[in-house]
Amino acid sequence: MKVLAKHRGDAVVVCALGMAANEWWAVTRSEDSFYMHGGMGFAASFALGLALSIPRTPVWVLNSDGSLCMNTGCLITEAGQQPKNLKHFVVDNQCYQTVETMPIVNQGGADYTAIARGAGIQQAITVDGLADLDRLMPEIVAAQGPYFVRLRVEAEPDYQRAPPANYEGPEMKYRFGRALEKKLGIRVFGPRGF
C-alpha cells in the first residue's frame, strides 16, 4: 500500500471491503477514498460508475481476490466501457483475510490476469514483488485505462493487523462526497445537503 500511495498522484480511490481498505486507510488517512463496508464484489462496479462520471480524474479500485471472485462479471462490464481513467488493482493473497484467512475458492488454480484479459481488458499484468511494483507504477499510472494489475502478496497470519477507518456508514458518504466536491469542484450534494 505504501508503494501504491507513493504513485497515487490525484487518483480517487475506491477500496473493496476488507484488509486492503484498512491498510490503505492506515497508509493514507485519505478522505478522498471510499472504504466500502458492504456490497462485497461490487467495489469495481462502484469505481466504474465513478470513473465514468468524472472522466478527467484518475480513479483506482483496490479490489481483493475474494471480491473479484464474487463478481468476475465486473471485468466484462469494465471492458465494455473501456474507461480511460480507471486502474483496477487486485490484492491477491489467496485467502479471505478478514474471516480467519480461510482459503480462497480454487486456491492457486485461477489466473485472474488471464481472466481480465479474456474479458477484454487488454492491459492486464501480474506483479509479484514490491520492487517490481515500484518500477512499473509510473508506466501503469501514465497508461490509459482500463488497466488491470494483480498484486500477488502473502497472507498475513494476524488477520486484523490494521484496523478500519475510524468513521463509517453515512459519515463515509458525506466525508467522501464533500472531499470530491472540494477536490474536483463538482456538486455531489444538492443545495439542501441531500
Binding site: G41, F42, G49, L50, S53, G73, G177, I186, R187, V188
Partner: peptide, 16 residues
C-alpha cells in the same frame, strides 16, 4: 448482473 447497476449508480452519485 443487476447488482452491478446498483453499485455503478452509487459510484455515479459521488461523481455528481
Amino acid at each position: 448482473r443487476e447488482a452491478e447497476t446498483i453499485a455503478i449508480c452509487a459510484g455515479a452519485f459521488f461523481g455528481g
